[in-house]
Design a protein around this nucleic acid. Structure first.
Lengths: 196, 196
DNA sequence: CGCTTTACTTAACATAAGTCAACCAAAAGC
DNA sequence: GCTTTTGGTTGACTTATGTTAAGTAAAGCG
């Protein structure tokens, strides 16, 4: 598992032995079973997560209905402690599958940044990139129709369509499950037309 | 103008005199006239911006149609150089009004971070917060209908509705200008019903 | 000042998504 | 193994947005 974390970090900068050792010593890896709620709405979010394996999602309960707004799979990060300190979360965080996470918190990060200042630069660059990705996704969501969003999802994250229940994908696409069902049917029919 | 920048930065940490002087010496302020295109699709984005006054927007040209996806006004930041180096931008950046910006680039930032390492921490925290805000907005966009989005815009950024053309607001809300027109009409009629 | 362009509105119609309800299949629980 | 629950599909109908086109008012420009 640590191999995966180091492999990810070393895409940004090579690590010294003692840096790796320090990270290992922190013992940050956690196992969660499918369905586990990691963060519950109304609680204070203090941790950041990095997905080693599995899948987690953020969701809201709005008028009694569950609305899934994000999925995080292998090598993706979830920053939760950064909105405003001590402001309760408006969303939930739960495991779609059995999941292995790297879990950090502000005090761990503070100590690590003090000991290895260049990790702070790494995290700055990293969060800037996350922001850029997020903005690009948002732009795409704004400018596309639900059907286009689904097609794009099939292209960019085909694994999600396989591993995630469709009612969660539907709200992720900003629509109702019935509509997603119809979109899939429409697309299938179009493919069959072309095959003929 | 520098007062505004310092006031903003000092919400995060008090600045030393020499830090302020160093920033002043960098001479980062730029004036742009309404309509000026700051970054054009296909060009390499290398700069980051901070809005002192005025308003800028990002937009795409898709099938010959302009799609506005973001607005930035006083005290907001636009990070452009962070997706991947040397990858041409897919969007345009232009001034909705006469605008004053703080303009930085990677080499300025590199020098500044070397001279004042705590600026790197500031920027890390800052971009983490931007990310959190962006994610929250995205979640809200996913879970709301166009009408709800417009109502939320009226509440959270009432200035935008005044200073930005409606056809730009429409694509920002993920709809066509005609639909925004109808939403406004519907809401007006509802208000009149209540007043009676 | 008059003309052109642009932004916005409105209407009629087409299309896609929302709603409600029924149904089915697979999975989960007992 | 049977029952219950959950996830997914389908159909009929409602509602909202997209499309196309026309019209208007204001802004911009020569």
């Amino acid at each position: 598992m640590e191999k995966k974390l180091f492999a990810f970090l070393e895409k940004y900068m090579p690590l010294e032995k003692e840096e790796k050792q320090a990270i290992t010593d922190l013992d940050l890896f956690r196992n969660y079973k499918k369905g586990t709620v990691i963060l519950r709405e109304g609680h204070i979010a203090r941790e950041n997560y990095f997905v080693i394996s599995g899948c987690i999602r953020t969701y809201y309960i709005i008028d009694g209905e569950e609305k899934t707004t994000a999925f995080f799979t292998e090598f993706e990060s979830v920053l939760t402690n950064s909105i405003r300190k001590d402001k309760p979360a408006e969303y939930n965080l739960a495991c779609v599958e059995n999941t292995v996470l790297v879990v950090s918190n502000p005090s761990i990060e503070k100590l690590t940044f003090e000991k290895f200042p260049r990790f702070e630069k790494l995290c700055r660059i990293f969060s800037e990139q996350l922001l850029a990705k997020n903005q690009a996704s948002f732009d795409s969501f704004r400018t596309n129709t639900p059907e286009q969003r689904y097609i794009e999802l099939l292209e960019k994250r085909p694994d999600l369509v396989q591993r995630v229940p469709q009612y969660q994908l539907a709200s992720y696409l900003g629509i109702k499950p019935e509509s997603l069902s119809r979109i899939r049917k429409r697309l299938q029919e179009q493919v069959q037309q072309v095959v003929k």
